[in-house]
Design a binder for these strands. Structure first.
Lengths: 257, 257
DNA sequence: TATATTTGAGTGATTTTCACTCAAATATAA
DNA sequence: TTATATTTGAGTGAAAATCACTCAAATATA
């Protein structure tokens, strides 16, 4: 059985005193592994209760600042897009089952009391480049891993629902928010870009029309070299022209008049 | 000076004990008066502090149920679309200035303490038919009125910001949520419908193209009569074909591939 | 009765969407 | 070495949507 870090636990207990009670923040950190979208899962306790990362809001901290701090604690980065996607507050939302995972450990009563209450959570999503690592940001997290968004139904609480709602907003942000900057590596091919779009949209797209549309937008810069070690014809490598990409983003809705 | 209702105040004081502290709900109730969009304003105290309506969440109440209860308290209706548009939580969000408006009244200390803390608020918007009245739902509300969305900068706290954010989401929901059902009276003309769209979008639209687009969608049923008492050529009256309208709604985004 | 104004209806150029074909490049198999 | 299968790059054209227009109809007002 894993042993809880006494110092970290004392710090957590102390921090909890300064947080707003019954409100949490949860993060859905999307990344693209080349085939599918993934989000981080953290193991709460040692039983098998995987959740998405989260934290609380200090009494003297702005809401978005808290989300950004928690993001930094989780992946060490703070320069990413961070967008609220919803607030979830059914009366059944509490960590009762997760606290059960610590019956073999010495958890202070003050911590048990804190986590036994009903929580309303505010969800933020962000997009991380594939190389970022998840950190064990809390003494209560015993492990971390990346979870495919198609397999989130194994997550505890309502976290599968959180991921699904975040994914819906991610889709609707495709034309208006600079998602590609965080999703894409420095160089990539158009077939790889297409796979990213298909992962976000959850459907296949027409290959020819996708390529044509992407090239017409003038947001891709040809690198003049092709990708090595491919199956058949080597695809051309591109980089994202960030200036043109940012200019291409729009909130406009086509209404037909 | 207005007198506070003692009984209502005692009930409020009692209710506050059962609510989740430091979390509020605010409602942006849009209506269309034929020319512009309006939202309800409620006067907190007797000084001149107008806010949008709101309330709190009972410990044993789901988040959305609380929003729907508050909506019912405010306009007596519960069958309307209700959609979360954001959560707002700067550290400066508190009712300090509004509580000052009660210095000439006997407010229990427990109530003053409650309202003196920092609040995180969850915003919901809804759409009300023009005939609905705003009710004085709280003993702390001394008056109510409709405020044009262009004049919300006079509202207290960050409520002008809340209305603006709600309006942005309202716009983006134009093709996917059944807004017209709640906005429109039983019968209306196409020029009136166009004014509604212009009020929501905050811009003018081409008259011919708007008419053409609306008629092509098959969601309008001609009533065979024309509107009386008009300036020049009498416009034709229509009703909304709700079945076809609901079928026409879509979450799809045109991506070009 | 003439005029101004608003509504209803339509036209056509341009752009976008979308299903499709064909050629080029290369790994793999014969 | 040569043939084949597979993937990528490029293009075509029909259909639909967008968008800036014109013109006729209806009626209040002059």
């Amino acid at each position: 059985m894993a042993q809880l870090n006494e110092d970290a636990l004392r710090k957590l207990d102390n921090d909890l005193q300064g947080y707003i009670p019954q409100i949490s923040i949860n993060l859905v950190i999307f990344r693209f592994n080349g085939e599918a979208l993934e989000v981080p899962g953290v193991l709460v306790g040692d039983k098998n209760s995987w959740t998405i990362p989260g934290g609380f809001i200090d009494q003297s901290e702005n809401l978005e600042d808290a989300a950004r701090r928690i993001l930094k604690e989780q992946i060490g980065s703070e320069k990413l897009l961070l967008k609220q996607f919803g607030c979830f507050g059914n009366t059944s939302r509490n960590f009762g089952a997760e606290i059960e995972n610590f019956t073999n450990h010495q958890l202070p009563n003050s911590i048990i009391d804190w986590f036994s209450r009903r929580f309303i959570t505010i969800g933020y999503y962000t997009v991380a480049p594939p190389e970022l690592k998840i950190l064990n940001a809390s003494p209560l997290f015993f492990s971390t891993k990346w979870v495919c968004v198609k397999d989130t139904n194994t997550l505890a609480l309502d976290h599968a629902n959180l991921v699904n709602e975040a994914l819906k907003i991610l889709r609707s942000d495709l034309l208006s928010k600079p998602l590609l900057i965080d999703f894409l590596p420095d160089s990539f091919t158009i077939p790889e870009l297409q796979k990213l779009y298909e992962a976000i949209l959850g459907r296949t797209v027409d290959r020819g029309n996708f390529r044509q549309r992407m090239l017409k937008q003038n947001i891709l810069t040809k690198l003049g070299v092709t990708k090595k070690k491919t199956s058949r014809r080597p695809p051309i490598l591109y980089t994202l022209n960030k200036q043109e990409y940012l200019k291409s983003l729009t909130e406009d809705i086509k209404l037909g008049f």
